[in-house]
Design a binder for these strands. Structure first.
Lengths: 334, 334
DNA sequence: ATTGGCACTCAGGGATGCTGAGTGCCAGGC
DNA sequence: GCCTGGCACTCAGCATCCCTGAGTGCCAAT
C-alpha cells in the first residue's frame, strides 16, 4: 500500500521539516530532492500518506508535517543511524579520558552528549546492585552517629549517615567494620541481603541493635534508593523556539528523578537504541533517544537525549550510541 | 531631594509592578495604596523620580516601571526582609531534617529554596579547606591505580582515582594509608600542604614516586577543584513569561560552574544577605539574592536564588536567610 | 499512473482606525 | 509653595480589512 516513492516522500518530508521547521509543500519537495515527478503526483502521494496518518496539514492550504506515526516509520525503516565523524570520535575520547572519578565520568558524559546533539542530555548513574563491594568504611561522627561509606569495584562511592539506637564504643564500630568487610568484600550488592542475614551471628548480642541499624541503611538506602540517580544537562538547548508551550513541563520532568527514569525506559542490552516519540514519552512534543551502557556486556544503566519530536534522529542516535559505547569502555577499564 | 512621599511612591511602584508585571500609572497607585493625594500630585512626584533615574516609562503614555537603580533603593532602604511564617519554618525544618548525607542536604536545600521562592535556587557545596580530615581511605583498583577517598568532619566524602607511576604492592598501599591517616587525621585541609611536605620522610625511597602521585591528587584535585561545586534547581520556574528573551543566557550561566560562582558573589559573614540587581549580575534582567551559610560562625559556602529583576525581594531575602540558617545548623550538628 | 490546468483556501503581513490608560502642563485654590 | 482639577495630547494594543502567495484538491487529458 505504500510503494517506494511514497516512502521516499515521507522521508523527504521528515528531513525537510526537521531542518526548516516549516510545513513542507509538494513543490519545494520536488525541487530540493531529486524526485523525477511533478508536484501533482507528489500531492497524490501526500494525500495517501495523510489518509494513513503519517502526516497532517496544520491548516488547509499549508504544507504537511509528520505525525508521531510518521516519525516512527521514519526511524524504524527509513533512516539509518548516522555514524560519528572521526573528529567527533576523537573529541569523545579525549573528553571522557580526563575523568578521574565516577562523578566526573557522569558529569562529563552529560556535557558531551548535550554538546554533540544540541539537546538535553540525561545520564543515569551505574547501578549498584550489579557491582561488587570493594570496601566498607565506618567513621564515627558522634557517639550515636556513624558515617557509612561504601566503595564498589567500579569506582562508585556511596555515603550515608546512620543514627545508632545506642551509643557505640570505637572498638565496637571497628569490629563491625571488620565483620562487614570480611563478609561482604567481593560480593555483589544484590547478594548482600542474604549475606547480611547470616552476619548477625558474629555480632555480640549487645551490639545487635546498632549493627541492625547499619545493615538496614546499607541495604535500603544505598542499594535501592540511590540506584536511581539521574543527572541531566544542556537545558540551554531548550531555549530554542521549540517547546514553545511545553517548556515548563519539560523542565519539571527533568527535575523529577522518577519521571526521568521512566523517560530513559526499560533496561535493554548495551548499545541497543530505544527511541520514544511524542506521546510515547508522556511529554507533549518531546522525543527521547536512549541506550543502555555497561561494562563488559552487562548493562548497568542508561543514558540518552531528550529533544523536540522534530529532532535529528539519525544524528542523535549516532551520538547516543557512540557515547554509550565509550562510557562503557571507560567504566570497564576502571 | 526625595521626601517621604516620593519614597513611598517608589515603594508602591516597585510593589505593584512586581505583583502585576505591568507598568503602573498614577491613578491605580492612589487607588491601591492609601495615598491621600490626587493622581496629579503623584504624577509630579513620578516626574522627579524619573528625572533621578529610579523609574522609566517604557513608552510615552504608559505607566512607570522601576530601573535597576530604583530596585536598589527599594532593597536598601524601602523594604524589610519578610520573615517566614511558622508554617514555612516548620516545613523547612522537617524537609531538611530527613537528609542523611551531605549530598542529600545540598539536594534538599536546592529543592526547598526553589519551592519557597518559586525561583531558581543555587547552592554551593561547603568548602573543604576549612574542614578537617576525619579519615583517608586508599583502595587499589588495579596494580597501577588506586581510589582515594577523603572523609571530612562535616560529613563530606570526596573521591578521586590516582594513576601510580609504579605498580604498588598491597602492603605499601596499606602503609601509605596508615601514614596519611596518622599525620592528617584531625588536621585542617588548608594546613594539609605543609603537613604533607614533611610526610615524605616516613616513606621508603622506593615508594616515594607513588606517594607523591597520591599527595598531589589529594592536594590539588580534592582541596581546590572540587571546592567550587555548585548545584542548582527549580529551572522550571524560568518558564514563566519572565526572561522572555534572556532565557538561553540564564540556562547557560547555570550550567557553567564559574559563572555560577561569580553570581553567588564574594564570601561574606554567615546570614549576611547580598542582593545583586540587574546589570550587577552580568545577566540581562536577572537578580540574585544570596547569603553565606556555615557551621558555628564560620562561613563555609554560599547559597541563593536567581530570578527576574522584577522579583519579590523581601520574600526571597526572607527565604534565603531562613534556609541559610537552618542549613548551617544542620551542618553544625553532623 | 502521471501530468498540467484551474479554482479554492487561508495564514501572515501590512494598512487603517478606534479606544483607553496614562501623561504633561497650566491655572486656580489652600 | 504645594496641591488639585481640568484639558489636550500620545500611543500601545486590539480589531478590522485587504491582499498576496504558497499550497491544496480535483479533473480532464496524456
Amino acid at each position: 500500500m505504500l510503494d517506494e516513492r511514497k516512502l521516499a516522500v515521507l522521508r523527504a518530508i521528515v528531513e525537510d521539516y526537521v531542518s526548516t521547521t516549516e510545513p513542507v509543500g509538494s513543490k519545494s519537495l520536488v525541487d530540493r530532492h531529486g524526485l523525477d515527478v511533478s508536484p501533482a503526483t507528489i500531492r497524490n502521494d501526500m494525500a495517501v500518506l495523510e489518509e494513513q496518518g503519517f502526516i497532517v496539514q496544520p491548516h488547509t492550504s499549508a504544507g504537511r508535517i509528520p505525525t508521531d506515526k510518521g516519525y516512527r516509520l521514519f526511524v524504524d525503516r527509513l533512516s539509518s543511524i548516522k555514524p560519528m565523524s572521526t573528529a567527533e570520535r576523537r573529541a569523545i575520547e579525549t573528553f571522557l579520558a580526563g575523568a578521574c572519578s565516577l562523578d566526573d565520568v557522569v558529569t562529563r558524559t552529560v556535557r558531551l552528549l548535550a554538546q554533540l546533539t544540541r539537546q538535553v542530555a540525561v545520564v543515569q548513574y551505574p547501578s549498584l546492585s550489579r557491582s561488587a563491594v570493594r570496601h566498607i568504611e565506618l567513621v564515627s561522627l558522634t557517639p550515636q552517629r556513624v558515617l557509612l561509606v561504601l566503595i564498589t569495584d567500579n569506582g562508585r562511592v556511596e555515603q550515608a549517615t546512620v543514627d545508632l539506637p545506642d551509643a557505640a564504643e570505637p572498638e565496637s564500630i571497628a569490629h563491625l567494620r571488620a565483620v562487614l568487610n570480611a563478609c561482604l568484600d567481593g560480593h555483589r550488592l544484590s547478594d548482600a541481603a542474604k549475606t547480611v542475614a547470616v552476619l548477625a551471628d558474629r555480632i555480640p548480642v549487645s551490639e545487635r541493635p546498632n549493627a541492625g541499624a547499619v545493615f538496614s541503611v546499607l541495604l535500603d538506602s544505598l542499594a535501592d534508593r540511590h540506584e536511581e540517580r539521574v543527572v541531566f544537562g544542556g537545558t540551554a538547548n531548550l531555549a530554542a523556539p521549540d517547546f514553545s508551550r511545553g517548556l515548563r513541563d519539560v523542565l519539571e520532568a527533568l527535575e523529577e528523578q522518577v519521571v526521568l527514569m521512566r523517560l530513559l525506559g526499560e533496561a535493554a542490552s548495551p548499545s541497543a537504541l530505544t527511541v520514544r516519540i511524542g506521546a510515547e514519552t508522556g511529554l507533549e512534543g518531546a522525543s527521547v533517544v536512549s541506550a543502555a551502557y555497561g561494562a563488559g556486556g552487562q548493562a548497568v544503566a542508561k543514558l540518552g537525549v531528550l529533544g523536540p519530536t522534530r529532532m535529528d534522529y539519525p544524528g542523535a542516535m549516532g551520538a547516543v550510541r557512540a557515547v554509550a559505547r565509550y562510557v562503557g569502555r571507560i567504566l570497564g577499564e576502571a
